[in-house]
Design a protein around this nucleic acid. Structure first.
Lengths: 338, 338
DNA sequence: CTGTTAGCGCATTCAT
DNA sequence: ATGAATGCGCTAACAG
């Protein structure tokens, strides 16, 4: 391995000077600078990043914690983060919790062991009280998922409004019996959507029936299961709000199996505007989330926090959602109102 | 920051002894070992990984290079790799090429700068001749994508057989005019599938018509575009082989728009067995790829190569594919033969 | 079985 | 503007 000493020797200079050149110090004569460059070139020298990290106490790495990558939402999120991180001179470490608290805590240890300069949490399996312990070791911010009480930067989407818009749309189509279907009891993202959902219902003076609530739906398979349950009801809902396009697609697939037409007999709205929402029959009305923007913002905020050492303070960045109306909610049997 | 010296001091021992218990050395008395544990516990000590890396010349990190994560195939691949890497005591760095040669080379530099102990390439934008330069800096293996001439370990799938099986299935349904549709001119994965495709056709004495070849289809949108082109032909194919379920879904979506029924008027077969293949109307016949197995194998092989320092040699691991017949290829107008 | 010593490769005082 | 010296935190000889 070629080290800074080798370069110094070949250039006939001291390692200090070489180091200065590498780190773009101002006061180095053009002449010596040239010599150093030549020597580096000749030897194919590249600084050893472990040594640098040890010296600088900075690894130029950040980690992102997500539930799992197979979920297309997180695939997109991480894709955008990787690009943003690279542009900012950072490498991105990927950490999946697989919905396990222990695994999540294990990943947080990266901050203790100084393997990363900061962490973006897009997952939240543990309570904030236990996560906050790690704040001593480095900056930690939340992205998408969040905890209201955490006094750190949080980049999130306006999920309340998202739930509200989607539900309001269903109500405008004349629906009064609307089911609610989401994933994750603990998830504040899901909770906020429910808040928006409730708000819309309240505005129309409609009480929510507990039998219409489904809280463990994440996948297409789950969606199909939900449909079966709905189908078996004596007084089924005429519309269903879902927390993801996959679940909506599952409901549609389930309906197809049972010969129930959508939106004629049941309206369904998704969430995410994933590609899947454009290819089901019918196409899924959904709520578009600015994933890329959110990812970029998260990376930039974290990098800022890494640079100015100051302790983290409470910060909130909220991005808007957008309702996208397609086929799965319009043209149903009910008369549109308003 | 609490260091090994602090622990040594509190325990009334030397740092060597502390280091020995940390690294599970055999010959340390139970008594002292206990003292060290107590001191570590009390101080909340955690070894600094930069220092360890510098000393050991091992970072316990590996990188995986993929085109992009949004592609669900790579999402799954990376998901499984992360789990396998963690189980083997490694962190996984994610690197996307975004189909750029320069970006890919940039990621390879991680090996030079000693930021990772090894790299799994699931992307291949550059020629092997330029990539092989990096072999001096650490182990490098290929996974899924490959270059025949590379004398390194390669974990791949039997794409030739995959293309063959799928095409054979189409032929058995009585099709004689079969289009071929894939992504990536450079990709050997695509090339091998084409080889299998050609082989099947040859067995039936059917020459391939160049007009039936599409080589730039990756996404749903691309699939829709392909359908339009097929639809506009004076002598269109009766079946189409596609390199991904997304493209197949796009063709189905396109057909729906034009009122062409599938498989009645056109049969379509996908590749990957993604969830999308189960929810389109009709469901997509496809080829299942053992992604998780491949990911695990790749991680294990790389970890092995990292451990025994020996220079890499040519190794091939090939996993089988499986044909999954659903609705998009059966029940068409042609009489099944054989 | 345990302590002392010497670096790993680099950036940064402190001199000059 | 440049060089010499020091130490980041850790592991590994080498003694004993």
């Amino acid at each position: 391995m070629v080290t800074i000493d080798d370069v110094a020797e070949l250039a006939g200079l001291s390692k200090s000077t070489v180091s200065r050149v590498i780190n773009h110090y101002p006061h180095v004569s053009q002449e010596k600078k040239q010599k150093v460059f030549e020597a580096m070139e000749k030897l194919g020298y590249v600084p050893n990043s472990s040594a640098r990290s040890l010296r600088n106490k900075k690894t130029k790495m950040i980690a992102v914690i997500v539930p799992r990558l197979m979920n297309p939402f997180f695939g997109q999120l991480v894709e955008s983060m990787e690009v943003a991180a690279n542009q900012s001179g950072y490498q991105l470490l990927i950490c999946q919790t697989m919905y396990s608290q222990e695994t999540e805590l294990g990943h947080l240890e990266l901050l203790k062991t100084k393997q990363v300069d900061g962490i973006i949490m897009a997952s939240l399996e543990n309570d904030w009280s236990t996560i906050s312990e790690y704040l001593t070791y480095g900056p930690l911010i939340m992205c998408n998922e969040f905890d209201e009480s955490a006094d750190i930067p949080i980049i999130k989407l306006d999920q309340i409004h998202g739930g509200y818009m989607a539900t309001k749309h269903l109500l405008r189509q004349g629906h009064r019996k609307i089911a609610y279907c989401s994933g994750g009891y603990k998830s504040m993202v899901a909770n906020h959507r429910k808040l928006g959902f409730d708000k819309a219902l309240a505005e129309h003076g409609i009480p929510f029936q507990d039998a219409y609530g489904f809280y463990n739906a994440y996948t297409i398979e789950n969606g199909m299961e939900v449909f079966k349950q709905i189908h078996a009801m004596k007084d089924p809902p005429t519309a269903v709000f879902t927390g993801s396009d996959e679940v909506a697609a599952g409901i549609i697939a389930g309906a197809r199996e049972y010969g129930v037409t959508i939106p004629n007999e049941l309206s369904v709205i998704g969430f995410d505007n994933q590609v899947i929402s454009k290819i089901t029959e019918p196409k899924i009305s959904t709520v578009e989330q600015p994933i890329e923007q959110m990812a970029q913002k998260a990376v930039h905020v974290l990098v800022d926090k890494i640079n100015d050492q100051k302790p983290l303070i409470r910060e909130r960045y909220e991005l808007p959602l957008e309702l996208i109306i397609r086929e799965s909610t319009v043209g149903g049997p009910l008369r549109a109102v308003e």
